[in-house]
Design a protein around this nucleic acid. Sequence first.
DNA 1: TTTAAAATGTACTGAACGGTTAATTTGTCA
DNA 2: TGACAAATTAACCGTTCAGTACATTTTAAA
Lengths: 227, 227
Amino acid sequence: MDTSPKASDKLRKGNWKQDPDAVKADILRVATEEFATYGLSGGRIDAIAKRSTVSKRMIYYYFGNKEGLYKSVLEGVYAALRESEETLKVGDLEPTEALALLTTTTFDAYAANPEFIRLIAIENIHNAEYLSRSEVIQKLNKTIIDKLADVCDRGKAAGQFRAFADPLELHWTISAFCFYNVSNQATFSASFGDTLHSEQGQVRLRRRLRDIVLGSVVIGYRPENSD
Amino acid sequence: MDTSPKASDKLRKGNWKQDPDAVKADILRVATEEFATYGLSGGRIDAIAKRSTVSKRMIYYYFGNKEGLYKSVLEGVYAALRESEETLKVGDLEPTEALALLTTTTFDAYAANPEFIRLIAIENIHNAEYLSRSEVIQKLNKTIIDKLADVCDRGKAAGQFRAFADPLELHWTISAFCFYNVSNQATFSASFGDTLHSEQGQVRLRRRLRDIVLGSVVIGYRPENSD
DNA sequence: TTTAAAATGTACTGAACGGTTAATTTGTCA
DNA sequence: TGACAAATTAACCGTTCAGTACATTTTAAA
């Protein structure tokens, strides 16, 4: 993705080489951490400048202002997650298998991208105003729905899925689980202990989720082996 | 809960009456809005002072500092939600009926308390540090688990629930749905349209959730009438 | 080699904001 | 009633922080 030398390799004083791409990438990397950790209003431009290897001036040079940087961060994590969704080949699997794979893959993808989850959570606090204004993000969500629609169609055609199976509702269901699993880990653990977020706990939840999703649309579905 | 006259009824200049309880309640009311809307770092003490009827000094007088106020707000919304859970009498219902009621009631309670949801989301961004430190909140969560445990026990004893039915897992499942339904409304609508959050959409989701929860633990459960 | 544009650094500014000081009014009770 | 405590105000303070002015260096084109 970025073969140029890291900005951190630059010499500090005197003879430095220009490398705009590395600078931008470095800013975005640090800014993603910062905003995911402290939120939009809590994130500090000075902190980003200090933790990256560039001066604050550069942030404004490339991203205009704080909100511009935040928006770029948002688009960046969205794009990263979409990649992992897009590579998923599901068209030649049995409908039930396909749905199972989509479900568990989403579970893993969300768990592997906590900054994405945190940033989306932050967006929701801001009523999604930046996400709504981003044309880049608008079109990224179609793929997952398309895949689910295909699976639903095939499942119904094969007489395996219930008639009311709906791609949007399915995505909502899956997303709710997978999102909450990451987004609310802190408060849930604080209230009820962290058994569900231990390694085993996560394995069990993942299987539970799959069973729940399949059980909700696959006619006569029986979990093979629960608990 | 508070029968004293609202602080907003006080006369501004000259002859005012002291009413500490009303002042505190007024501050908390406005602060809850403020923090739920803008987050902890985004919320402004000056804004709270201006929108309430008291001066900024009062906030520090009663709550010490910004974090103290935030913590009080958190405890307040938690207590409010717990009340709605506590009044729920579920012990003399059939296990399946009881679980259905617990589920839909949670759905409604979360939907009716968006500030609670937003504040919990904010807490998660802060890694639940204030919630963890609050002794008040720690014990509020037992009731819901106890109720679910009772229902599970009775359901298994009656041979109606699957053996692996687990109160904590059930609560997690229910909470995930109900929480996500409120917390991610903004981004979900922005990405996929607001069909699921229209009035009918919510009715359908609520029924879906009930079917999913019951279907996951009740042996041989069939939704009566789905869409 | 000149030169314009792009890229970067340093030091600063103005406003916002959390928190405080010191004085004033109201309530209580000996 | 007078004195002391509790409640409340208005003005102020120090810091933090987003954003900027201006100088300087690097690159690329002519």
